[in-house]
Amino acid sequence: MAAFLTLFTFLFIIALLCLFRFLYLASRYGKPSPNRKGRPCKTMIVVGAGGHGMEMTRLLSSLNKKQYKPRIYVVAQKDAMSRNKVEKLESEPVIWGIMRAREVGQSYISSVFTTLGGFFHSLPLLLQARPELILCNGPGTCIPVCLAGYLFKFIGVNSKLRLVYVESVCRTEKLSLSAILLYYSYIADDIIVQWPQLVEKYSRTKYLGRLF
């Protein structure tokens, strides 16, 4: 009985600590990081297939490359087109391939397993890279990367990480599944949308004006 109580207390304290940690991280949603006095920011960029990659390319074009470096790109394995896009952007890019979370038309149940696979695949990459910023804009490929990044942030291995998600311009009425997951879980530090009516539905998202 005593052993059971000790175990219970122990688990209770762990759960409580996790809760406080979660609430603390969630309280930083959308809040700026401390002034970095120009120190560059190690950035991981998840480049998705098709239109997502096109949008990411546009977004990156506006960033000051001297601030956001070094840059590590993550693409889905077998996604040669996204890889190509990155190779056009950078002269000597660092590109990592991870398992794709969901093929078009794949069921949501089986995508849970592929996402888990991608998550375990991402863990060593994220542990090694420890980026200060993960920039992503869907589709599902970015979810395992974000989960792995958030885990290391949560346990304090990479506390400084900020996770920014930019919703696709194609989403005018409803957030995508990826954005919804990152929004309600407070895993993302900021979610940018490209149509003002989305902010009315999801109050923590931000509309910055027309980006495209």
Partner: peptide, 17 residues
Amino acid sequence: QGQPSLFADHLDKLMGF
């Protein structure tokens, strides 16, 4: 046409630049 630089400005603020 929109301006991707609006995003850059926002990100700079968030990241402490």
